[in-house]
């Protein structure tokens, strides 16, 4: 696999209030979307600040785009774009003024900056508000301006801290599509912090779950699911909830791990896709009408909640 875009080794940052990030080992590969997940206060924003050289680590190290953020933060910041959790716009300036400062600092020529800002504001439906003071803009409008700011210089690595919180459904869909195309079509690497698991599931190649500063799991959702659950859950729709006789037919079958009755029929957990066909055939042979058989692979959401549940059990015991 290509050299990692981001690699951290035992990265640690403490605050007087406690350890915000505790010995993080994490890799992000070029062109992938990593969903950085975890409850409030897990250490997601702190991680971004460390990786972009804004905060210094107390111990451990990181390499971002081949550079050490603790030393070469400036060079890293030239190549990264950050959407901060808080839009951080000056209310007294217009959207365009807020953005043009950034463009100037990033070294864009005034004419280029002007054009690029106009283009991106249009892209996010903010063209009409471009020259109005930001004061009075809604949360979602601010978020869009902040997104433009992160994308202004077409960075190769993006840190997006809750990019869709506060956006309306249409804008959310738009941003999700944008992130997806940045990664898949333009080869950009994206670190995405979010509390929306559906969105993370759609976008992320890999996920990392932080909890109180500690990394609890990292990997492809499907691989993590395979470690947690043996089989593939499959819903079988019948005319009525499956009775003991029907369940009794399926349970002895080779490859069926569990079989439970559900309000719409039954749910089996199978060792492999092929087993689904065998289950359906067995039912049909026994004159049970089958209306549908739908595999329900474990999603990123399932994985996340399973990890959370595990943490809860740990904290009780």
């Amino acid at each position: 696999m290509a050299a990692a875009a981001i690699q951290t080794v035992q990265l640690t940052r403490r605050f007087p209030s406690g350890t915000a990030l505790d010995r993080l080992d994490l890799e992000v590969f070029p062109g992938e979307v990593l969903a950085l997940l975890g409850p409030n206060g897990a250490g997601k924003t702190t991680t971004i600040r460390l990786l972009n050289g804004v905060l210094q680590p107390d111990s451990g190290s990181a390499r971002v785009l081949g550079l050490d953020p603790a030393v070469d933060g400036h060079a890293i910041r030239q190549r990264t774009g950050v959407l901060t959790e808080n839009a951080g716009l000056d209310d007294r300036l217009t959207a365009r003024e807020n953005l043009e400062v950034v463009a100037r600092i990033r070294g864009l020529k005034p004419a280029v900056a002007h054009e690029r800002v106009g283009e991106l504001l249009e892209r996010f439906d903010m063209g009409e508000r471009a020259d109005v003071a930001v004061q009075g803009a809604s949360t979602g409008q601010r978020k869009r301006i902040a997104l433009v700011r992160a994308l202004l210089h077409d960075p190769e690595l993006l840190f997006l801290d809750e990019p869709t919180s506060g956006l309306d459904p249409a804008a959310t869909r738009d941003v999700i599509e944008l992130i997806s195309s940045l990664a898949t079509e333009h080869g950009r690497t994206v670190v995405l912090c979010t509390h929306f698991l559906g969105e993370a599931g759609r976008l992320a190649d890999r996920m990392a779950v932080l909890h109180r500063g500690t990394l609890r799991a990292a990997g492809r959702p499907a691989e993590l699911a395979a470690e947690m659950w043996q089989g593939l859950p499959t819903d079988i729709e019948l005319a009525a909830p499956a009775d003991a006789r029907v369940l009794g037919l399926l349970r002895p079958l080779d490859g069926v791990i569990t079989a439970e009755s559900t309000p719409t029929g039954l749910r089996v957990e199978v060792g492999h896709r092929d087993v689904i066909a065998r289950v359906v055939r067995t039912l049909v042979d026994a004159s049970v009408d089958v209306f549908a058989a739908t595999p329900q692979p474990h999603t990123l959401e399932d994985v996340y909640f399973a990890i959370e549940a595990q943490l809860e059990i740990e904290s009780i015991s």
Partner: peptide, 13 residues
């Protein structure tokens, strides 16, 4: 105004 963080993430020393 919480605008400082924006500046910190930019390439300005």
């Amino acid at each position: 105004r919480r605008t400082m963080e924006t500046l910190l993430h930019l390439p300005i020393s």
